[in-house]
Design a protein around this nucleic acid. Structure first.
Lengths: 159, 159
DNA sequence: CCCTATACATAGCCAAGCTATATATCCAGC
DNA sequence: GCTGGATATATAGCTTGGCTATGTATAGGG
């Protein structure tokens, strides 16, 4: 019998906040989580406009502007103008950004590994499935949260 | 077979950061996560000194001082002097603090519930077990992080 | 052409994190 | 019982990430 989902969700968020601190200290010396989070979103979506990035990252538009500034300064994203709409700024991660993200993930995982090294194979699989579930939910909420144009968008492609 | 534990840990932290944003927006209008996290730690440990609270919360001592100030201002913790050592400040959560924490968890869970309502029973149980695993690891790292020293990586430091 | 809506930028605030340093207390040794 | 180093917390000052409110430029329909 599972406990009430309410309780599980409360515990989930609590343990998340604590794990965030463990990860922050384990991967000290690296850049801030917000930048990695933003890069992660970009990686899963491909090039998008700044407003969409804000929605999908679950931050306000000004916060996305600020984060984008930091990412541009580090050469981790590129901003290009939409030829069809001069107001729009398209954001895409650069190869350097992808590489930096991968390096951060590797460093973080290496730092956390000792704490998780003695997990049983079953526990590892449980974690893996839980990550998949959570990613699915987070991306589902992204879809719910996008009040903008996801439907009638002609999907201006690529370049 | 499960994917490499490195990859799972990287994904775990990534999805955690994203989930944190979802939770922050879902539970809008409430107090900051750091205060709840601190109360959570106190709840699981009972009364402890400020320095211990900093270590267990995985924040620096000055940060713990600041957080404790906010919690005292809200009446959610009490500070008493250690009769045996005048330097020491003992921190304990108040009933009001416990109640506020419980209320926050309930509100947060209610806000997140719609996003998780359609999970299968098996997925719910996976989440529950994952939360238990993570809590166990987080508390294990607390034990590892005994004094001011951060637990070192097993790899040779080459900085 | 205006007029409104949209996309992003700017300004200005606050919280949370850090390092470095100051203050107060304890304790060991003399 | 003084002195000096160690320990517990406080203070100062900075950076980043988050927000709301508002400004500016462009799009697009009367």
């Amino acid at each position: 019998m599972s406990a009430d989902l309410h309780v599980i969700l409360g515990d989930l968020v609590s343990v998340n906040h604590r794990l965030t601190r463990v990860a922050a200290r384990a991967a000290r010396g690296t850049e801030s989580p917000a930048l990695w989070r933003t890069l992660s979103v970009l990686r899963s979506t491909g090039p998008i406009r700044l407003g969409e990035l804000a929605d999908l990252s679950r931050v306000s538009q000004p916060t996305a502007t600020k984060l984008a500034g930091g990412l541009v300064a580090r050469g981790w994203i590129e901003r290009t103008n939409d030829p069809d709409d001069a107001r729009v700024s398209l954001i895409a991660s650069t190869p350097a950004g992808e590489a930096a993200l991968a390096a951060w993930r590797a460093e973080l995982a290496a730092a956390l590994l000792p704490y998780f090294a003695d997990l049983s194979a079953g526990d590892v699989e449980t974690l893996e499935r839980a990550v998949a579930i959570l990613r699915d939910r987070v991306e589902a909420t992204e879809r719910m949260a996008a009040p903008h144009r996801l439907a009638a968008e002609p999907t201006v492609t690529a370049r």
